[in-house]
Amino acid sequence: MSDYIVLAISCIFVNNILLAQFLGNCPFLGTSKKMETATGMAMAVVFVLVLAGIITWLTNAFILKPFNLEYLRTISFILVIASLVQFVEMFLKKSMPALYAGLGIFLPLITTNCAVMGACLINIKEDYTFIETIISSFSYAVGFGLALILFAGVRERILLAKVPKPLQDTSIGLITAGIIAMAFFAFKGMV
């Protein structure tokens, strides 16, 4: 049990998917200008990443490995993730319209979010068991959400500040992200 807790902490803080592994930076900068969009994106990622982690692990273990098709991993994973996102979108639209409205346009965007694909590939690379895969996918997604929401909070304040012209927008955003990454850097070596 304690192993699982250590794994979760290491995925959320120490190896934070955004700030330590640099995955999913496009939505990180793109959707963090407002708190609402950041929360929406964070929720959508948690939802999809756990499902994608499970499904890609199953694909790898029961289809690719037995038939020695591991070289097709990249293609099959992206297809699985893309169709999963499409399926989740249709399912939510039909049966949970409230949640669908909340996630909105962020669902389709997730297909090209490298955090999802990256986390799935890390799970396979680290040879995680099924339970570990579920825990690590969930923790990576929580870490993503945490960093995104923290960053959005800071960015909303920056909008009120006077920033020199060449530094505006993305430039100051990246520097802010660097300072937040410094905070997360302190967790390094903890686990």
């Binding site: 700030l19 640099f22 100051i172 955003g173 990246l174 520097i175 660097g178 990454a181 850097f185």
Partner: peptide
Amino acid sequence: APGAFICLG
């Protein structure tokens, strides 16, 4: 990691 963000910024 933090240096990468600040450098790019």
